[in-house]
């Protein structure tokens, strides 16, 4: 009882403190104009990304139809459009993520890619790379950060899942490294832990502007127990070879956007 009273008292003190201590901030001049400008910039960026993706797909298709080589003839057929379950079969070619600044990844043979487009609920587009099939949106995700909602139920032993996200308007401090080397292993975050990950690593690709560099794309790697050096080497190679732009096929995206049902945990 005494404990509950103390707790209630603390809560009341905190309410008063928050009300008193939070400054009364004035809106900047032209706030709504700035909001409209942000929307306009975003629409323009999405239009450009869409045009790039359409052009890249057309070029790829034309190349496949007009210039079949012996190597291509021998290569196993690419999987058809994803089945209605949304399961994404592995790809064997470079893939691009038009909504992530055209980020293009050289995907190893056994890996899969998945693009999750922006929508009104999750306005930030995402990409996923995994050494297993990616099956998004199987059940509601209860995690705080939608980016933690992974397109796999559970990582198998030795599996990794890479979450890709795009840049934003903020700038990284000049002291940040421009290296593409993955960060040291760290404890998994909530989303990584939810799918059985035991280690998390990451890296951000920065542009060359100085003194502040913009972040162009980020890689967050969640790894299960038993991840081999060979797998980490594949991950590092993908990061080393990642580029912006290019004419690779867009990564497959789910037919249903994540607004109504999110990725499974």
């Amino acid at each position: 009882m005494r404990h509950e009273d103390d707790h209630a008292l603390l809560e009341d003190e905190l309410r008063v403190l928050l009300e008193r201590g939070t400054p009364l901030l004035r809106a900047p001049e032209g706030r709504l104009r700035q909001v409209r400008e942000r929307v306009t910039r975003r629409r323009r960026r999405l239009r450009m990304a869409g045009a790039t993706a359409t052009g890249a797909a057309a070029l790829t298709l034309a190349g496949a139809l007009l210039l079949p080589t012996t190597e291509e003839a021998q290569r196993p057929a690419l999987p058809a459009a994803p089945p209605s379950t949304g399961v994404m079969a592995p790809l064997a070619e470079p893939v691009s993520f038009p909504e992530l600044n055209g980020l293009t990844i050289e995907l190893p043979e056994r890996w899969s890619a998945l693009a999750v487009p922006a929508d009104t609920v999750h306005p930030d587009p995402l990409g996923f790379l995994g050494a297993q099939s990616l099956a998004p949106f199987t059940r509601p995700c209860q995690l705080t950060d939608p980016r933690d909602c992974a397109p796999v139920r559970r990582l198998g032993r030795g599996d990794v899942l890479i979450t890709l996200s795009g840049g934003w308007s903020g700038k990284q401090q000049a002291s940040e490294t421009a290296s593409r080397a993955l960060s040291p292993s760290a404890a998994p975050d909530e989303g990584c832990e939810a799918i059985g990950g035991v280690t998390k690593r990451g890296v951000a690709l920065l542009d060359d502007g100085k003194p502040n560099r913009r972040i162009l794309a980020t890689f967050r790697v969640c790894a299960a127990a038993g991840t081999t050096d060979a797998t980490w080497a594949e991950v590092q190679t993908m990061i080393d070879n990642a580029r912006l732009g290019g004419s690779a096929s867009p990564a497959p995206s789910p037919s249903k956007p994540p607004s109504s049902s999110k990725a499974g945990q």
Binding site: P23, R26, P28, S169, K171, Q173
Partner: peptide, 14 residues
């Protein structure tokens, strides 16, 4: 660890 975008207004005052 970042600084906000450079064109933020300066008129946010208490």
């Amino acid at each position: 660890g970042e600084v906000p975008h450079g064109d933020l207004p300066d008129s946010v005052t208490s």
